[in-house]
């Protein structure tokens, strides 16, 4: 395997609050390569977004980060604000869930796009406008010439998200971080936007991090999947392995909680209980209180992330064998 583009080692993120500090991300390590889509799956509060906000220096002001995040040799977490600005402007782009709040409602698409192109690539006004048009066409905005002069409220949700993707491309990034990029979109539009992301990945050799709660989204696009629970990686491996032969009871439970139109209709088997509070002490496996395979050791000893029973790595003392997965009602 070639050198990863992004190599994150022992990353932790904590937030100071009036009470106990909240640990959002607890000592996680992972990497992303060029031309690869890494799917990051987790529920609200799992730390999946904060992990990647930390890399771009985008945490709230009470956030603290430790660890290393090497992007082509630069440690993003050790850079000064100015250096980070430079690297971010050259190499990293973000796409967020809600394009309406990310776009400035008072400025036309052209004004917002040319501003970025002038800033990041030093283009003059006329060339910036030509480039903006090319980028809109690149993300298959129909009638792009007319839409260039539109204001955000004149565009549908799907078109706004395409504009956001076009803007994210304006600095010619190496790493694209897409945080729930299709969650706010209707189903018929969602699949179009996902396929644009995949096309860009292929043609521009981008590394894409796809953060989502939707197993269907990662099933379509991701090469590798990282399942995050309570700030730790529960399971990490090839998409096929994780989705078809989940080895962590949490992954199996998530899959069994999701009805699937392509599978026969079966009774849902929800995971019992609720995710833990980030302020609680971290002892043992964080999933233990909700796990159907829990043993006494799970409550005391934190399991390491290693490959025990299968190709993928899992942080679990008692990982599922493929036959257990069927019992847990996991992959169909």
């Amino acid at each position: 395997m070639h050198q990863p583009l992004l190599d994150v080692r022992n990353l932790s993120v904590r937030f100071q609050t009036a009470g106990a500090p909240v640990i959002a991300v607890d000592n996680i390590s992972f990497s992303v390569s060029q031309g690869e889509v890494l799917g990051v799956v987790g529920e609200s509060g799992s730390g999946k977004s904060q992990t990647f906000m930390a890399l771009g220096g985008l945490l709230a002001s009470n956030g603290e980060t430790t660890g290393e995040a090497l992007l082509e040799g630069h440690d993003l977490l050790a850079l000064s604000d100015r250096e980070l600005d430079h690297i971010r402007g050259q190499k990293i782009s973000y796409i967020f869930q809600d394009p309406m709040t990310a776009l400035n409602p008072f400025r036309s698409v052209a004004a917002q796009m040319t501003e970025l192109l002038r800033l990041h690539r030093g283009l003059g006004q006329a060339r910036a406008r030509t480039e903006a048009l090319r980028l809109l066409e690149r993300v298959r905005v129909p009638d792009a010439r007319r839409r260039l002069d539109a204001y955000p409220h004149e565009l549908s949700g799907g078109m706004r998200q395409r504009v956001m993707i076009a803007m994210a491309l304006s600095n010619q990034p190496r790493l694209l971080i897409a945080d729930e990029p299709t969650t706010a979109l209707d189903v018929t539009v969602q699949i179009q936007v996902l396929d644009i992301l995949d096309e860009l990945r292929r043609e521009e050799n981008l590394a894409v991090v796809l953060i989502t709660h939707d197993m269907g989204v990662v099933a379509r696009l991701a090469h590798r999947i990282m399942v995050v629970y309570a700030g730790t990686i529960a399971e990490e491996g090839e998409a096929e392995d994780v989705l078809l032969r989940p080895s962590h009871p949490y992954t199996a439970g998530l899959l069994a909680s999701m009805p699937d139109l392509a599978a026969p209709l079966t009774q849902l088997q929800p995971i019992r209980g609720y995710p833990p509070d980030g302020r609680k002490a971290r002892i043992g496996c964080m999933f233990a209180p909700r796990c159907f395979k829990v043993q006494p050791v799970c409550r005391d000893v934190t399991p390491a992330l290693e490959a025990r029973v299968s190709r993928q790595r899992q942080a679990c003392h008692f990982p599922l064998e493929p036959r257990d997965t069927a019992i847990a009602g996991g992959a169909s």
Partner: peptide, 11 residues
């Protein structure tokens, strides 16, 4: 347009 969680179907 609905996505499946099965990557073999989805691809």
């Amino acid at each position: 347009s609905v996505l499946s969680k099965d990557p073999e179907i989805e691809r």
